[in-house]
């Protein structure tokens, strides 16, 4: 190999490196720039938001947020969102974690099929289900209630709850449980004393993920509630009439918890995808 070969190889490597860095920067900007504008406009006074040109640095004026909080029905919608998300979180863990445990610990007929069916619940578009669901909910009296909407959100969150907990339980060697059994535990106490402490952070992550799914969901919420709208459904309904600064503030309030939570549990989400790819 001659000296020119070496230098051209190095140049090629360097240009590849630049391309890589540029792609990363572009992707980050794609996500971060809109979020930044959202932040600026939320933390500016209503007048600034509606004027032009807009500043690139937030004014740290709470006017928009105050307007948001004072807007008729907004706080109630926020409360509804929290209630539905918490209910979703509880129900999806209550159902999903035992299913994940069963998948990782027991051999049973149709296990592979079951795993696939769990995922398949996400294969049906929600609009397809929304109308029959609305009819059924009206008949059973579940329409326009937090619990009814939480049930729908739970079905959306369960596949993730099952897969995340399945991968977590699979990461705990069965010998730990067996050792506990030989040391005086029943199946139940072995679970509470050995498995649960090890799995708790993962369960929390899976719960938070369910919370975020419910928090962000808009379609079912818009169809199935009228009086008790969640924040997403409420904002959607007011999209036409609300002033610009309300939209920015509402968007910001919606994005922040989801963003913070997803960031907090990212490690566990990667674990889930690792299993799903196998």
């Amino acid at each position: 190999m001659t000296a020119t070969d070496v230098s051209s190889g190095a140049a090629q490597r360097r240009s590849g490196h630049y391309l890589y860095a540029a792609s990363v920067a572009l992707l980050c900007a794609w996500v971060l720039v809109p979020l930044y504008f959202l932040l600026i406009n939320t933390l500016s006074s209503p007048d600034t938001v509606n004027s032009f040109p807009k500043p690139f640095i937030p004014e740290f004026d709470w006017g928009s947020l105050e307007f948001f909080a004072g807007y008729e029905g907004m706080l109630k919608a926020l409360k509804n969102s929290v209630v539905v998300a918490v209910l979703t979180m509880i129900m999806s863990i209550a159902v999903g974690a035992p299913a994940g445990y069963a998948l990782s610990r027991f051999e049973f007929r149709g296990k592979g099929l079951f795993r696939m069916l769990v995922l398949l619940t996400r294969a049906f578009p929600l609009p397809l289900l929304a109308l029959p669901l609305a009819v059924m909910f009206i008949r059973t009296g579940l329409d326009d209630t937090a619990i009814g909407l939480a049930l729908v959100h739970t079905t959306l969150a369960i596949p993730f709850a099952v897969l995340i907990t399945f991968s977590l339980f699979s990461g705990i060697p069965i010998e730990l449980e067996e050792a506990a059994w030989t040391l005086g535990c029943t199946r139940f106490t072995a679970f509470t004393k050995v498995v649960l402490p090890l799995i708790l952070p993962g369960i929390a992550a899976s719960a938070i993920f369910a919370f975020v799914i419910s928090w962000n969901e808009v379609f079912a919420a818009a169809v199935l509630t009228i009086e008790n709208r969640t924040l997403t459904a409420f904002l959607l309904a007011k999209l036409g009439e609300a002033p610009l600064h309300l939209k920015f503030a509402g968007g910001f309030i919606l994005v922040v918890p989801a963003l913070v939570f997803i960031f907090a549990v990212r490690k566990y989400l990667f674990a889930m995808w690792g299993i799903a790819n196998r």
Partner: peptide
Amino acid sequence: LPPKDRGIAMVFQNYAVFPH
């Protein structure tokens, strides 16, 4: 009987020491 009622103790190949 379940393992706990047999008066046994067991040592496992991978030790199974509780990590928490």
